[in-house]
């Protein structure tokens, strides 16, 4: 069994959680953006995560490795969500309409904060798994050493 695969799996998990964290940060940073870079209103983003590589290999790979190979998770897409924007009365704003209302992206700060903390905890769990793999591998290296 290849212990390097364990590190690779945990790394994919950390990668996914970091992407979720980045997306949440981008959403929170744009809470008060009235205009995006392309002139349109900012759309809140969400990350779509899928399991990486259908792992239950058949045939040849199964014979070579004796079992399916696990590959962790991967980010399938970062998609804009279709949350309705909301309006705020702010007549002094240059982007205000004729009635004095400004259109803001429909970002729910509570949802974003919940996403933030679940991503953080999941990231930490991946780190724990990686450290466990490390201690197992190091312990195995001691085999046959001073008894």
């Amino acid at each position: 069994m290849d212990y390097r695969n364990a590190f690779a799996i945990s790394a994919t998990g950390m990668n996914v959680e970091k992407m979720r964290l980045d997306t949440t940060a981008a959403n929170l940073a744009n809470v008060h953006s009235t205009r995006g870079a392309d002139g349109k209103l900012y759309q809140p983003l969400s990350v779509k995560v899928v399991e990486a590589g259908a792992s239950f290999a058949t045939g040849f790979e199964q014979q070579v490795q004796g079992a399916g190979r696990l590959r962790g998770a991967r980010v399938a897409a970062v998609e804009p969500t279709s949350v309705a924007p909301h309006k705020m009365y702010e007549p002094g704003n240059p982007d205000a309409d004729e009635k004095g209302y400004v259109t803001l992206p429909g970002i729910n700060q509570v949802t974003e904060m919940v996403n933030l903390s679940t991503a953080l905890r999941a990231y930490e769990a991946n780190v724990v798994a990686m450290n466990a793999a490390k201690s197992m591998a190091l312990k195995a290296l001691e085999l046959g050493g001073g008894q």
Binding site: M1, Y3, N5, A6, I9, S10, T12, G13, V16, E17, R20, V49, E51, S55, A67, L70, R71, G72, A73, T118, A119, A122, A125, N126, V128, A129, M130, A132, A133, M136
Partner: peptide
């Protein structure tokens, strides 16, 4: 060792 990889895979796919 295989069980560790399975658990790591489950944790990586927690979300």
């Amino acid at each position: 060792s295989m069980r560790h990889q399975a658990i790591a895979n489950n944790i990586a796919n927690a979300n």
